[in-house]
């Protein structure tokens, strides 16, 4: 029979917290993929004024974790859009293909905090046995935020004219020859 004493639990808690903190910090420093929700400005943020990235195209009928089609790079005069997906590949979509999709131009201030769902169990060290209540609540709110983020500030592409789509492109005049898709860059926080 294992016997846990308070000192042992205290030490274990501290180690776990150190590891979790280090993990979070490392996640924050690591280069992200080029296409990411993080590349969108927060709603209402002043960086919306000089934001240079393209809007994100999302498939509203896809699963919550795999519904991102890519970043809008360019739209041709006949409505064909060029997108870069999370894997760094460039693809083109004809109007009929992207009409069911949505275009997201901003992310809500309350972000997904997907991390909060994974770190919810750590609440045991602060909430004690109440974690049985607060951890599920945290998962619920994280889920709601995730839902909100995936649905906020979206425009249905079938309601947009070519000129309106053009305004959301990363390269309204065309993808430059020197552009390298999928390049590793540090995350831009807006």
């Amino acid at each position: 029979m294992l016997v846990f004493n308070n000192l042992y639990l205290q030490a274990m808690k501290n180690n776990i917290l150190r590891i979790a903190t280090a993990a979070l910090l490392l996640v924050g420093c690591a280069p992200t993929q080029e296409v990411s929700w993080w590349n969108l400005p927060k709603a209402g943020h002043e960086r919306m004024l000089d934001f240079q990235r393209g809007a994100l195209i999302v498939d509203p009928h896809g699963s919550a974790l795999k519904n991102m089609v890519g970043e809008l790079l360019y739209v041709s005069p006949d409505g064909v859009v060029t997108v870069e997906n999370k894997e760094g590949n460039i693809a083109t979509l004809r109007p009929r293909e992207y009409y069911p999709y949505k275009l997201h131009i901003a992310r809500p201030s309350a972000t997904t905090a997907g991390w909060s769902a994974t770190t919810a169990p750590l609440l045991v060290f602060t909430h004690g046995w109440f974690v049985a209540l607060t951890a599920p609540l945290s998962w619920v709110t994280s889920g709601m935020n995730l839902y909100s983020e995936r649905h906020a500030y979206g425009l249905y592409m079938n309601e947009l004219s070519i000129e309106q789509i053009r305004a959301q492109c990363r390269f309204p005049m065309g993808v430059p020859e020197e552009y390298t898709p999928g390049a590793q860059t540090s995350r831009q926080e807006y």
Partner: peptide, 8 residues
């Protein structure tokens, strides 16, 4: 956050 759909 929530859901805001923007018209064109």
């Amino acid at each position: 956050g929530g859901t805001i759909l923007m018209a064109s």
